[in-house]
Amino acid sequence: MAESVTLTVNGVPVRVPAGTTIAAAVTAAGVTRFRRSVSGEPRAPLCGMGICYECRVTLDGLPHSRSCLLLCADHQEVRTDE
């Protein structure tokens, strides 16, 4: 069986298979709004490949992390909508 990793998304623990991106884990955690645009619109991943910056989250305190290009690891703390 594939190994799994556990991280938290907005404080809620989420367990995902190894190799899952943070973007996918955030969605799996039921979060639909990754960030808010400059005029306040909810936004979520568009390109899946690091181009659009719509998937930005705060990862372990580091803002503006592109979650579609980051793989989940144990003990990570992800915050959305910041």
Partner: peptide, 30 residues
Amino acid sequence: RELFLPFPGWTLPNVMGAGALTLMSKTGLP
């Protein structure tokens, strides 16, 4: 990369690139 053209509603969450949704589903998006 994919060409995205603007239409009303294209900024809504879960409107994604076609290739993008595939890439994301290959890497864990349910």
